[in-house]
């Protein structure tokens, strides 16, 4: 293998090593440690100056205590389950909201498509945090949505949406909608229009043609979009913190509390490691789906 090829192949692996494996190993290491009143607040720490004995002591100090702890309190598995449920429901809602948009974009005149694409991407130019904050102004009881609904006479008393699960779903759907739209659009856009005519020619109505042809052909896009929404939603912390109520149980919040309130970096790390393991499953499935469609 010539050296240039070697560099080309090594580069992504080096990237992966530096930006994923090393941080992961650090987190894994912390998850096997114990809390301590010190800087940093866990022990043991790696001390090469003590030589072999130090290294032996270091590894001797690691154990799975924190992972066992995660099984002892039902808070953790309930949070994981609740997160998965919220992520799954939010992903489905995002699909419902995103598919028609992607479909309309792919059916728009070609000269309009770059503009529409731009409009989808445009919100990314502002901070996601600010956009989620903006929803407070819309959803709060004296917010724009309630004002509009009261004014139009749809409701008599303001709806309390903010600080509920509904607000969390709205936030997730809103934030991740482009991640759903873009892959679906990509799969619909390259679809040959004559396929629909062929389906009609062979006896389909417009609607059956959609379900028999358009929908199956956009499946890779749907799958990609669902993963792109589900994976970040699962560990989502910002949206439930800003828009959700205290009853919204998500693992991101549990992790935050372990880290900040309990100052228990090891348990927080253990929560993160388990979350990663849970995510590895859909990520691997996603990867296989991508390969199959490559």
């Amino acid at each position: 293998m010539n050296p240039r090829r070697l560099v080309l192949i090594a580069a992504p692996y080096a990237w992966l090593l530096a930006l994923f494996m090393v941080p992961f190993l650090i987190v894994l290491k912390i998850s096997l440690s114990d809390t301590a009143v010190a800087i940093p607040p866990y022990a043991p720490t790696f001390d090469l100056s003590a030589g072999w004995a130090g290294i032996r002591e270091f590894f001797g100090g690691l154990d799975f205590e924190n992972f066992i702890w995660l099984t002892e309190d039902d808070l953790y598995w309930k949070s994981y389950l609740s997160s998965m449920k919220i992520a799954a429901v939010a992903t489905f809602l995002t699909l419902l909201a995103g598919y028609p948009v992607a479909y309309a974009m792919s059916r728009a005149k070609p000269e309009w498509r770059p503009t529409l694409m731009m409009l989808i991407i445009l919100p990314f130019w502002s901070s996601a945090l600010i956009r989620v904050y903006a929803w407070i102004g819309i959803l709060q009881s004296e917010g724009y949505l309630n004002q509009l609904l009261l004014w139009s006479g749809v409701i008599d008393t303001p709806l309390s949406i903010l600080n509920t699960q509904v607000a969390v779903y709205i936030g997730i759907v809103y934030t991740y909608l482009p991640f759903m739209i873009l892959p679906i659009y990509a799969s619909l856009e390259k679809m040959d229009e004559s396929l629909l005519e062929a389906a009609e020619d062979l006896g389909c109505t417009r609607i059956t043609a959609f379900w028999r042809v358009t929908f199956p052909l956009s499946k890779p896009g749907i799958i990609a979009g669902c993963f792109l929404v589900f994976i970040p939603s699962l560990g989502e912390f910002v949206i439930p913190s800003i828009l959700g109520g205290s009853q919204t149980l998500m693992i991101g919040k549990v992790l935050w509390e372990e880290f900040f309130s309990n100052r228990d970096w090891p348990v927080a790390s253990a929560v993160a490691v388990v979350l990663l393991l849970i995510l590895v499953i859909p990520i691997v499935l996603f990867q296989r789906n991508e390969e199959r469609n490559a």
Partner: peptide, 19 residues
């Protein structure tokens, strides 16, 4: 202390979320 803090946080989570 850390152990007590954990009890307090856990109790608080239970109060807030019911879990």
């Amino acid at each position: 202390e850390p152990k007590v803090q954990r009890v307090v946080t856990r109790l608080w989570t239970k109060v807030k979320s019911g879990t």
